[in-house]
Structure formats: C-alpha cells, structure tokens
Design a protein around this nucleic acid. Structure first.
Length: 270
DNA sequence: AAAGACACCTGGGAGC
DNA sequence: TGCTCCCAGGTGTCTT
C-alpha cells in the first residue's frame, strides 16, 4: 500500500478532523496486527485530547499530552473518519471514538499495519533507525553518494531501504528511477554524484506531485473521506509491463528484484 | 557489514 | 461455479 504520499494524504485529512478532539473511547477489535496492539491503550487514551498529528516516514504519529500513538498502514491499511454509528467493516481492527460522534477507524485486510504506543520523551527503536525524510534538505545528492560507496546492491533496492531514506516504496522507486533515466539494475556504488543529483531531485518531485494528487490508489488505499487518490493515472512505468514507454515508445519491462516487481524502460534507463 | 531469503496475512484475478 | 496458483503500496528478522 501506502507509501509516503498516501500516509501524508492521510495525515493532512486527519489533521482537520481529529486535532483538538477528545477520545471518548478506544476499541481494539483485532489485536493481531504486525505486532500485538497494546491493551493498555484502552486506558491510556481515555479522555485524552488529540494535540497534533505528524509523520515520520510511513509512520503516522498522533500526539497526546502523555505520549504518541504510532500507526503504520502496512500494505493494505487505510484510515477513515466516519460517523460512530456506521456499521463496522470486516477489517476495521481499531477505532477511536471522538467527542463529536465521529470515529477514526483503521481498516487493514492483510494486517501488516501497526498500532503502537510511545511514551512521552521516549522513542520506539523502530523509529530510531530510520534514515532522513526524502523531502527534507538532509536528503541530498552528497548524502546518497556518500552512503552508497562500496555498495554492490542495485539502486532500486537501495532507495527502498528505510535506513537509507524513508518513504520510498515500490511504486515511487520505479517512477523516480524512470524520471532519472537510471536503470534499476545499476549498483548503487557505481552511480556518480551528478546522477545522484538528478535522482534526489526526481524523488522529491515524484513524491510532492503524488501528495498534491492525494496519493496513488491501486486497490485498498483511500483518504480519510473514503475517496481514492488520483496519482495512479500519472504513473509512467509502475504496473505498465509490455505497454509502450511514454517517452521513447519502447516496451516497459517487468523484472523481479529483491522479490519485488520492478518496472522500467530499458531504452530510457541506463 | 551487507545482501538475500523468508516471514507475517487476506483477497482478487487468471486459468482450468 | 469452484478450485489452485500467483500477485499485491511493507519491513523486521534470520541466514549466508
């Protein structure tokens, strides 16, 4: 599912709807997500007011006075805010009932998502090991160039590594490399500083554009209002195996790298 | 230390 | 209709 733009779309939607609201009650309908959903949340969140909402990579951070609710959407997760009376969907595993009679609900069929708690002043080990935000100035050509030296790994797998940079998943990795004219098969360690300049700019551009379009909806993803994102129509290589390349009219190829599908144009990308 | 394989799960679509 | 197989926006952990 959701890569950074979809999580950011969710965050922006939630910001308007839940910040300032008080939690009437929390409900865990299915505790078995990626990790067990902590039961203490039922007490911890009771009567707490939502102070703010931020994001770190693909993690959503809902802030309270006593700590932070950390949520991840995994592959198939989405969050909606609906009337609390609305009948529960089959895979809605977690719910926060809010003081204005609406509810935040996490829907996640595959259950690769997560709901965790972080105490005030603490940082979950999960978040500690993350690389820089791709849209920040810390993420730049020099940085990528330096940490790629002596790496034999292909560039696509490399930029999907959250320890290197967060938020770049399978769709946007493919799109960014296409825009940069870099073959996904190239070893990260063999790419020049100049090409990393192009790549970092491409990643920033693709992610920003996707956010503007409300993210990419392939199947499960929707914004908090239940509406899909519109970036799928703008994808140039992802999911387009055997279709003509928009730039050179060659044929888009599909290969497997690191057990994930990669789409690219072998004529445009060297 | 780095790279690759595997694990966790459900549902949709293709092919028979 | 229904079965089997393959595929899917992620990422921590284990093995080489």
């Amino acid at each position: 599912m959701p890569e950074l733009p979809e999580v950011e779309t969710t965050r922006l939607g939630l910001k308007k709807l839940i910040v300032g609201q008080k939690i009437l009650s929390a409900h865990i309908y299915q505790p078995r997500l990626r990790w067990p959903v902590p039961e203490h949340l039922l007490n911890t969140l009771d009567e707490q007011r939502v102070a703010g909402i931020s994001r770190r990579g693909k993690y959503l951070l809902i802030e309270f006075k006593n700590g932070t609710l950390v949520m991840h959407l995994g592959m198939s997760g989405s969050i909606r805010v609906v009337d609390s009376e609305l009948v529960l969907k089959k895979h809605e595993h977690f719910e926060l009932k809010l003081s204005n009679n609406t509810s935040l609900r996490l829907d996640d069929p595959r259950r690769f998502g997560a709901v965790l708690w972080q105490n005030k002043g603490d940082m979950l080990p999960l978040l500690k090991s993350l690389g820089p935000e791709p849209l920040s100035d810390n993420f730049n050509a020099n940085y990528l160039f330096e940490c790629s030296r002596n790496r034999t790994q292909n560039i696509k797998t490399f930029i999907m590594n959250a320890k290197i940079v967060v938020g770049v998943g399978n769709i946007y990795a493919a799109e960014s490399l296409f825009l940069s004219k870099i073959s996904p098969k190239t070893s990260a360690g063999k790419i020049s500083l100049k090409r990393y300049q192009v790549l970092t700019q491409s990643i920033k551009l693709i992610l920003s554009e996707a956010i503007k379009n409300g993210g990419t909806t392939l199947k499960d993803f929707s914004g908090v209002d239940g509406k899909p994102g519109y970036f799928a129509q703008k994808l140039l290589v992802y999911g387009r195996a055997n279709a003509p390349c928009e730039k050179c009219n060659g044929t888009i190829k599909k290969i497997v790298q690191n057990q994930r599908s990669t789409y690219y144009c072998s004529q445009c990308q060297k």
